[in-house]
Simulated assay, not measured.
Amino acid sequence: MAERKDKQKVIGEPMTDEQIAVFLDFSPEEGVNGDFHVLEKAYRALRAEDFTRFLAFFKDQNRDLDARDPQGRTLLSLIDQHPKGAKYAQALRDAGATA
């Protein structure tokens, strides 16, 4: 069946706080900073507006927005290289990420 041009595509329902907070509990692989790991998981899986909400939960737990991966890179430094990462990078900066 052909998609009607006048129908708007819906890309998922709004996420609940509980669904977003799940990303705080992902365990990292050995040798990976736990804060970096959950930030990266959330970045890869969440829409920008949900990622912004995730960052509020992350900060409420006094976690490190400038956590580094095993190569010494922060998520902000990685996202700054992604053409479509501007909203995510801005959300990190607004939350207090500096590196």
Rank of each mutant, 00 (worst) to 15 (best):
D60N: 15
S77L: 10
K41G: 01
K87W: 01
D94H: 07
R4A: 11
P28S: 15
L39F: 02
P14A: 07
A67D: 08
R47T: 05
L65P: 13
P70N: 05
M15P: 00
G72V: 07
L92P: 05
A95K: 14
K9L: 07
D35R: 12
D94K: 14
R4E: 09
V10C: 00
F58N: 05
P28Q: 09
D17C: 00
P14S: 03
T98A: 01
L46I: 01
F58V: 10
E18G: 06
F57S: 15
D35H: 15
D69N: 15
G72T: 06
P70W: 02
V10D: 01
A56S: 10
F36A: 03
L24Y: 01
Q81Y: 05
I11F: 03
A42W: 07
D6H: 09
Q71S: 12
L46F: 01
E18V: 09
S77E: 15
Y88T: 06
D94F: 08
P83Y: 12
R93P: 04
T52S: 15
A45H: 10
V22R: 07
V22S: 04
M15Q: 12
D66Y: 02
Y43P: 08
K59L: 12
Q90L: 13
A95E: 11
D66H: 01
I79T: 14
L92Y: 03
S27D: 06
H82W: 13
R4W: 03
S27E: 09
S77Q: 13
I11P: 00
F57P: 11
K7Y: 08
R53N: 05
D6T: 10
L75T: 11
Q81L: 14
R47K: 12
P14G: 00
R47G: 04
H37I: 09
M15A: 12
A2I: 10
I79K: 08
H82D: 15
F54R: 11
P83L: 12
F26T: 06
Y88P: 04
K5P: 02
Q90Y: 04
H37S: 13
P70I: 05
D25V: 00
G85A: 06
A95I: 15
K41C: 08
L75S: 11
D6K: 08
F54Y: 10
F36C: 02
I20S: 02
E29K: 15
G96W: 03
F57A: 14
F23Q: 00
R44S: 13
R4H: 07
K59Y: 00
R53M: 07
L92H: 03
A91C: 10
T52P: 07
L92W: 02
E29F: 14
D66I: 01
Q8Y: 00
G96H: 03
S77D: 12
D50K: 11
Y88R: 10
E3D: 04
F26L: 06
A48W: 06
F58M: 07
T74C: 11
R63C: 08
A56C: 00
I79W: 04
S27L: 04
A99D: 13
K84A: 13
D69M: 08
N62T: 14
L39G: 03
A21G: 05
R4C: 05
